[in-house]
Lab assay of single mutants.
Amino acid sequence: GDWICPDKKCGNVNFARRTSCNRCG
């Protein structure tokens, strides 16, 4: 399913099809 970026500065939910965090950094 969808997953949350492990980066504390991010924390946005990513679609399951993504293999990396979206809009992190």
Score class of each variant (00 low, 15 high):
P6A: 15
C24Y: 00
G11L: 11
N14G: 02
D7L: 06
K8R: 07
N14K: 04
A16T: 11
V13T: 14
N12A: 09
F15T: 12
R17G: 14
C21F: 00
K8I: 12
R17T: 15
V13E: 07
K8C: 04
W3I: 07
R17A: 15
D2K: 03
K8W: 09
P6H: 08
K9L: 08
K9W: 04
T19E: 05
G1R: 05
V13K: 13
K9I: 08
G11A: 14
F15H: 07
K8N: 11
N22A: 14
D7F: 07
T19H: 09
V13I: 11
G1S: 09
R17L: 10
R17C: 07
C5K: 00
W3E: 04
R18Y: 13
T19C: 05
S20W: 05
A16M: 12
W3N: 08
G25D: 08
R18G: 13
P6E: 13
G1A: 09
R18T: 15
R23C: 11
D7W: 03
C24K: 01
G11C: 06
C24F: 00
V13C: 05
I4H: 15
P6T: 13
C10W: 00
R17H: 15
C5Q: 00
R18L: 14
R17S: 15
N12D: 09
S20E: 12
C24N: 03
T19Y: 07
G25P: 04
N14M: 04
C5R: 00
G25V: 03
R18C: 12
R17D: 10
D2N: 12
C21I: 00
D2P: 00
C10R: 02
G11T: 06
I4S: 05
P6L: 12
C5E: 02
N12M: 04
K8M: 11
R17M: 12
R18M: 15
W3S: 08
G1F: 07
N12I: 06
G25L: 05
D2M: 10
P6S: 12
K9G: 11
G25K: 09
C10M: 04
S20G: 06
G25T: 07
D2Y: 02
N22L: 13
C10K: 03
D2V: 00
G11I: 03
N12F: 10
P6C: 07
N22K: 10
N12Y: 13
A16G: 11
C24P: 02
R23N: 13
V13F: 09
C24L: 01
D7G: 05
S20V: 08
N14I: 02
D2C: 04
C5F: 00
R18W: 13
N12Q: 06
S20N: 13
K9H: 12
K9A: 13
C10Y: 02
K9V: 07
T19A: 05
C5D: 04
G25N: 08
R23K: 15
I4A: 09
D2W: 03
R23E: 09
R23M: 08
F15P: 12
D2H: 01
C5L: 01
R18H: 12
I4C: 03
I4N: 05
R23Y: 05
P6V: 05
V13D: 05
N12V: 04
R23Q: 12
D2R: 03
C21T: 01
W3L: 06
R18E: 14
A16C: 03
A16W: 13
N14S: 04
G11W: 06
G25Q: 07
I4G: 04
R17Q: 15
R23H: 14
C10I: 04
C24A: 04
S20P: 04
T19V: 08
C24G: 02
R18N: 07
D7A: 06
R23G: 14
D2E: 13
R18F: 14
S20L: 06
T19K: 10
N12L: 05
C5W: 00
T19P: 09
C21L: 01
F15C: 11
W3H: 09
C10N: 01
G25E: 06
S20R: 10
N14H: 02
D2S: 06
C24T: 03
W3T: 06
R17I: 12
P6F: 08
G11V: 03
C5M: 02
P6Y: 12
D7S: 05
I4W: 02
N22S: 14
S20M: 11
T19F: 08
K9R: 10
K8T: 11
P6R: 07
D7Q: 13
K9Y: 15
N14P: 01
G1K: 12
V13L: 06
A16L: 08
W3G: 02
K8E: 08
W3P: 04
C10T: 03
G1L: 08
C21V: 01
A16I: 09
C5H: 00
I4D: 05
N22Q: 15
N22F: 11
G1M: 12
G11P: 01
V13R: 09
N22Y: 06
N12W: 02
G11D: 02
A16K: 10
S20A: 11
K9Q: 11
N22E: 15
F15K: 14
R17Y: 11
K9T: 12
G1E: 13
C5S: 02
V13G: 07
R23S: 11
C24S: 03
G1Q: 09
C21W: 00
P6G: 07
A16E: 13
C5Y: 00
R18V: 15
A16S: 14
N22W: 11
C10Q: 04
R18S: 14
C5A: 01
F15D: 14
